[in-house]
Design a protein around this nucleic acid. Structure first.
Length: 882
RNA sequence: GGGAGCUUAGCUCAGCUGGGAGAGCACAUGCCUUACAAGCAUGGGGUCACUGGUUCAAGCCCAGUAGUUCCCACCA
C-alpha cells in the first residue's frame, strides 16, 4: 500500500497508468472460444487531424462500453485506426506546398506529390493516436489500421471489382455536384443546402418566324448560354400552338426547339422553362428524353466556355454580363425576389455547380433492399430509435453514388482504358487490354471517395477479403458509436456494404450521439474560432474529469453545450474520490485476512445493500446505453452515501481517529473491511467512466498483493448479489438518517454552531437502531450525550424539539427556546402533515385506485399514510407538551 | 415541400417500462467537525411552453397550438 498525496493531480498519474495498461497488454483482443466476443470499430479519425471534442465525446462513449464489456468477461476488441481523408488531407498538403515552395501539385506531378502526402501522413499520423491515448481509450493498438494500408486497399480493390463485375458499378455521364474550388466531383451527401434570398429573372426568347415570344424564368441567367431547348407543359393552352416551333436564344443565336414535357409546372413562373441539359439535373433528364443537344458552358473552375465573348468569365461575372446585355436588348422582362436552396461544398463551402460529367457510380437501388430490411426488422437497432426513420427514408430515396474524385490522394480507380474502347477492371494491375490485348492501356487517374473505403471498415480491418481468424471470431461487430451527422456518409454505407459482402449486418446497434456545441449553442468550427481543445482540458482538469463531464448531463442523440469551466465540478469529484480513498487507506492498518464473515452493523448492511443495488442498476443502464444515468448514480452513491454518510459513520469505530479514546486498543475490523470492500467495488463500477483515477487508487491499494487482480481494469464488473440485499436494514438506517437530519436542520434554523454541543434525548419505539448508533449520532448531530428512551422528559419546557415519523428528538437548549415561535412552527408542520394525510386518504378511499393500481403502488401509498400519521401524532404530542 | 428534435429551478441539463419534480453551477446562512475549503451542514428557488384528450394516476402516452433548432428535397 502506497500513501497518496493530499490532492489528486491527474497529470502525475494518467500517462503512467496508460503505460501500465499497455505494458500489461490489457487492451489486446484475444480470441477465446470460451468467451463471447464483443467488438467495436472506431470511427476512424482523419489521419492528419487533431483531436477535437467530438472525438472526445465519441471515444469516451466507446471506451466506456468496451471497458464495461471487457470487465464483464467478454473477449472485447476495440479496433482503432485512421482514415486517409482524401480531400481534407490533400488540401492540407497542397496548402503547405503553395505556402512554402510556391508550387502546385501539378508542378510536382502525381508520384512526387503522393510521396509528399505520405511523408505528411508519417509526420502527423500518430498525433491523433497519441491524443486518443491521453483520453484513456483502451483500443487494441496492435491491430491499428489505416484506410490506405495494404489490407484495406485490398478490400477496396476487391469490392470495386466485384461490384463492377455485378454491374453495380458503372461509369457514365450524369449530372454531378462539382466543387470548382476543390476541382472534384462530390457525392450528394457531400453537398450542404442553404436557403438564400435570390432573384428570379424572366427572360424573353423570340420565336423564330413569328412575332410570338416566350418568357422563361430562371435563377441562373448565365446558364442560358447552354440552353438547347425551351419546354412547356403539353396541356398548357397558352403555349400549345408553339410546341414544335423554334425559339432563338438571345445573345447566342442558337435555335432552340420548343418541346412539351410533363415535368414543366404550368403554375410556376411563366410555365415556360429554359432547358440547359449540361447544367441542371432536371434539364439533363429532359435532354435525354428529347435527345437534345448538350452544350457545356461552365468549366472545372466555374469559368464560361463555348460562349464567344463570355468565355473566360467567372460564373458570377458572366451572370452580370448576360443580364446587362439582355437588359440592353430589352429582353429582361421582370425580376422578382425568390428563395433559393443553394448547394455548397461540405468541405470548403464553395457553391457547387451541377454539371454533367463522366464519373463512376455505384448503382444503389439493388443494394438498398437488404440495407432497409435489416433496420426494419431490427437486426440493426438505432439508439435512439428515431434515427432509424431518418436512415430508412434516406435509403429509400437514395440516388446512385458518385464515387470518383478528381484527386490524387486516395485509392486510384482500378480501371484501364484502351484505344479499342474497352475498359479493363481488374484485381491485379493488368499489363494489357482485357479485350484486344494491346499493351497501350492507361489507368483512370481518379481516386475513390474516401467513404468508399470507410464503408468497408468493419470487415476490412478484421482482414477481409482474407478469411482471417479475427474476421471469423470478431465479425460482426457489436456496437457502432458515432454522431448523427454521418449516418448517410458512413453508417448507411457500412450497412449495405456489410450486407452485400459479408451477408451479415456489420453491427447490431448504432449508438448515436449528438454534436458538441460551444457555450452559446453554436457548432464549433475553425472559422468561428470557438473550438475547445480537449487536450487543454485534459491538462487542466484531467481526462477523467473531461470524460465524466461529457457523459453526464447528456442523453443519447442529443447535442450538448460545452462549458470548459464545468469540468471543474468533475475534477472536484475526482478529488473527492481521491480523499475518500486516502481516508480508507489511512485507517486500514494491516489488511488482515479474515476467516469467515464479520458481524455487520446496521450501517454496514445499509451501505453494502445500497452498493449492491447500484451495481445491478448501473449494468442495466449501460446495457440500455443510458451511460449518463449510470454515471450519475455512481456519482451520487460515492458522494452522498459513501462520503457524506458511511465514512462519517465509521469514524467513531476506528481508533486511528479516536484521539480522545486513548485507552482503546480496539480496531473495528468490520468497518475496515466494509470500507475497503465498498471502495474497491465502487472504483470498479466507476472504472469504465473514470479509468485513470480508479486504476491509480487500486494500484495504490493492492499493488504487490498477488491475491488480487493486477489491475482494476482486469477485475470483474460488480453484479447484483441477493446475499447482499438488506432492504429492511436499509429502511431502518434511513430512520436514523432522518433523525440526524432533523436535528441538524433544527439547530441550523436556530443558528446553533456545531461547536455548541447539547444533550440529545431520542424518544422512539425503535430504541435498538438508535442505541446501536449512539456514538455516531452524537457525532453527526453535534450531541454531547445521547439518551434513547421510549418516554419523553417529564418537563418538556426548555427543550428544542425535532420530529420525524419514528422519533422525537429533544435538546435542552432553553435559552434558545421561544415557546410562541415553537408553537407556530409545529402548527405549520401539523397542517402540512394533515394536508398530506388527507390527500393520501382520499387516494386510498378511491375504489378505482385500489382496484386498478398495482398492489405495490397501493402498498406504498399505505406506508406513506402510516408514516405521515405517525409524524402527525408525534407533532401533536410535542405541541401538547409545549 | 416533407420529416425530426427541443421547450423542466437564475444558467446548463438529467428524469430509464406513467405511481409524490432532480443534479451540477449559481444563490443564502452557518461551519477550518484533522479524508477532502477542489470541503461540510442547512436552506430558498419550478403553472414541467400552451390547450384538450386517454388513465385510478400524466413532466412522461395521444391530438392540436406556439416558439425554437436541425435534417431531407432536382419546381425552373
Amino acid at each position: 500500500m502506497r500513501e497518496l498525496e493530499k490532492t489528486y493531480d491527474p497529470s502525475l498519474v494518467e500517462d503512467k497508468i496508460y503505460k501500465l495498461w499497455e505494458k500489461g497488454e490489457y487492451f489486446t483482443g484475444v480470441i477465446d472460444p470460451d468467451k463471447k466476443p464483443f467488438t467495436i470499430v472506431i470511427p476512424p479519425p482523419n489521419v492528419t487531424g487533431q483531436l477535437h471534442l467530438g472525438h472526445a465525446f465519441d471515444n469516451t462513449l466507446q471506451d466506456i462500453l468496451i471497458r464495461f464489456k471487457r470487465m464483464q468477461g467478454y473477449a472485447a476488441l476495440w479496433v482503432p485506426g485512421t482514415d486517409h481523408a482524401g480531400i481534407a488531407t490533400q488540401i492540407k498538403v497542397e496548402e503547405e506546398l503553395r505556402n512554402n515552395e510556391g508550387l502546385t501539385r501539378y508542378d510536382l506531378g502525381r508520384e512526387a506529390f503522393l510521396e509528399r502526402v505520405w511523408a505528411w501522413k508519417h509526420t502527423y499520423g500518430s498525433r491523433i493516436v497519441e491524443q486518443l491515448k491521453k483520453l484513456g481509450t483502451s483500443c487494441d493498438w496492435s491491430r491499428e489500421r489505416f484506410t490506405m494500408d495494404e489490407g484495406c486497399s485490398k478490400a477496396v480493390r476487391e469490392v470495386f471489382v466485384n461490384l463492377y463485375e455485378k454491374g453495380l458499378i458503372y461509369k457514365g455521364l450524369r449530372i454531378i455536384n462539382w466543387c470548382p474550388n476543390c476541382t472534384t466531383a462530390l457525392s450528394d451527401a457531400e453537398v450542404e443546402h442553404e436557403e438564400r434570398e435570390s432573384l428570379l429573372y424572366h427572360l424573353c426568347y423570340p420565336v423564330l418566324g413569328s412575332l410570338d415570344t416566350l418568357v422563361v424564368a430562371t435563377t441562373r441567367p448565365e446558364t442560358m448560354l447552354g440552353d438547347t431547348a425551351v419546354a412547356v407543359n403539353p396541356k398548357d393552352k397558352r403555349y400549345k400552338h408553339l410546341i414544335g416551333k423554334t425559339a432563338v436564344l438571345p445573345l447566342v443565336g442558337r435555335e432552340l426547339p420548343i418541346i412539351a414535357d410533363d415535368y414543366v409546372d404550368s403554375e410556376f413562373g411563366t410555365g415556360c422553362v429554359k432547358i440547359t441539359p449540361m447544367h441542371d439535373p432536371n434539364d439533363f433528364d429532359i435532354g435525354q428524353r428529347h435527345n437534345l443537344e448538350q452544350v457545356l458552358v461552365i468549366d472545372d473552375n466555374a469559368k464560361i466556355i463555348n460562349s464567344g465573348k463570355y468565355n473566360g468569365l467567372d460564373r458570377y461575372d458572366a451572370r452580370k454580363e448576360v443580364l446587362r446585355d439582355l437588359e440592353e436588348l430589352d429582353l429582361l422582362v421582370k425580376t422578382e425576389e425568390h428563395k433559393l436552396n443553394i448547394g455548397t461544398c461540405h468541405r470548403c463551402s464553395t457553391v457547387v455547380e451541377p454539371v454533367a460529367s463522366k464519373q463512376w457510380f455505384v448503382s444503389m437501388k439493388p443494394l438498398t433492399v437488404e440495407a432497409i430490411r435489416v433496420v426494419e426488422d431490427n437486426t440493426i437497432r438505432f439508439v435512439p430509435e428515431r434515427f432509424s426513420k431518418i436512415y430508412t427514408h434516406w435509403m429509400e430515396n437514395v440516388r446512385d453514388w458518385c464515387i470518383s474524385r478528381q484527386l490524387w490522394w486516395g485509392h486510384q480507380i482500378p480501371a484501364w482504358y484502351c484505344s479499342c474502347g474497352h475498359v479493363t477492371v481488374s484485381r491485379t494491375d493488368p499489363d494489357k487490354c482485357g479485350k484486344c490485348g494491346s499493351a497501350d492501356i492507361k489507368r483512370d487517374e481518379d481516386v475513390l471517395d474516401t467513404w468508399f473505403s470507410s464503408a468497408l471498415w468493419p470487415f476490412s480491418t478484421l482482414g477481409w477479403p482474407d478469411k482471417t481468424e479475427d474476421l471469423e471470431y470478431f465479425y460482426p461487430t457489436d456496437v457502432l458509436v458515432t454522431g448523427y451527422d454521418i449516418i448517410f456518409f458512413w453508417v448507411a454505407r457500412m450497412i449495405f456494404s456489410g450486407m452485400e459482402f459479408m451477408k451479415q449486418a456489420p453491427f447490431h446497434t448504432v449508438f448515436m450521439h449528438g454534436m458538441i456545441r460551444d457555450s452559446q449553442g453554436r457548432v464549433m468550427s475553425k472559422s468561428l474560432g470557438n473550438g475547445v481543445d480537449p487536450i487543454e482540458i485534459i491538462d487542466k482538469y484531467g481526462a477523467d474529469a473531461l470524460r465524466f463531464y461529457i457523459v453526464t448531463g447528456n442523453s443519447p442523440g442529443n447535442d450538448m453545450r460545452f462549458y470548459p469551466e464545468r469540468c471543474e465540478a468533475m475534477r472536484n469529484f475526482a478529488n473527492k474520490i481521491w480523499n475518500a480513498s486516502r481516508y480508507v487507506m489511512m485507517n486500514l492498518g494491516e489488511m488482515r485476512q479474515r476467516d469467515g464473515s464479520l458481524p455487520l452493523e446496521l450501517e454496514d448492511k445499509w451501505i453494502l445493500s445500497k452498493l449492491n443495488r447500484l451495481a445491478g442498476e448501473v449494468s442495466d443502464n449501460i446495457d440500455k446505453y443510458e451511460l449518463g444515468v449510470a454515471a450519475a448514480k455512481i456519482y451520487d452513491f460515492i458522494w452522498d452515501d459513501f462520503c457524506d454518510w458511511y465514512i462519517e459513520l465509521t469514524k467513531p469505530r476506528l481508533t486511528n481517529l479516536q484521539i480522545t479514546n486513548s485507552n482503546s486498543e480496539h480496531v473495528d475490523d468490520t468497518a475496515q473491511q466494509v470500507l475497503v470492500r465498498v471502495l474497491t467495488d465502487f472504483l470498479t463500477l466507476l472504472h469504465p467512466f473514470m479509468p485513470f483515477i480508479t486504476e491509480e487508487i487500486y494500484q495504490a491499494l493492492y499493488s504487490g498483493r498477488t491475491a488480487f487482480a493486477p489491475a482494476i481494469m482486469t477485475r470483474a464488473y460488480p453484479k447484483f448479489d441477493e446475499a447482499l440485499n438488506f432492504p429492511i436494514e436499509e429502511a431502518k438506517f434511513e430512520s436514523v438518517k432522518a433523525a440526524i437530519h432533523a436535528v441538524r436542520s433544527r439547530r441550523s434554523e436556530m443558528n446553533v454552531p456545531p461547536s455548541k454541543k447539547s444533550a440529545l434525548i431520542i424518544v422512539t419505539d425503535e430504541p435498538d437502531i438508535f442505541e446501536a448508533g449512539e456514538s455516531y449520532i452524537a457525532r453527526l448531530a453535534y450531541a454531547s450525550t445521547v439518551t434513547v428512551t421510549s418516554k419523553p422528559p417529564a418537563d418538556i419546557s426548555g427543550f428544542v424539539t425535532a420530529v420525524t415519523n419514528d422519533a422525537r428528538l429533544f435538546m435542552p437548549l432553553s435559552e434558545l427556546v421561544d415557546v410562541a415561535k415553537e408553537r407556530e412552527r409545529i402548527e405549520k408542520e401539523i397542517s402540512k402533515a394533515k394536508a398530506d394525510i388527507e390527500k393520501l386518504e382520499q387516494k386510498l378511499a378511491n375504489a378505482a385506485f385500489t382496484a386498478k393500481a398495482p398492489e405495490q403502488v397501493v402498498n406504498t401509498e399505505r406506508e406513506k399514510l402510516s408514516r405521515q400519521s405517525a409524524l402527525l401524532s408525534n407533532l401533536e404530542a410535542s405541541l401538547e407538551e409545549l
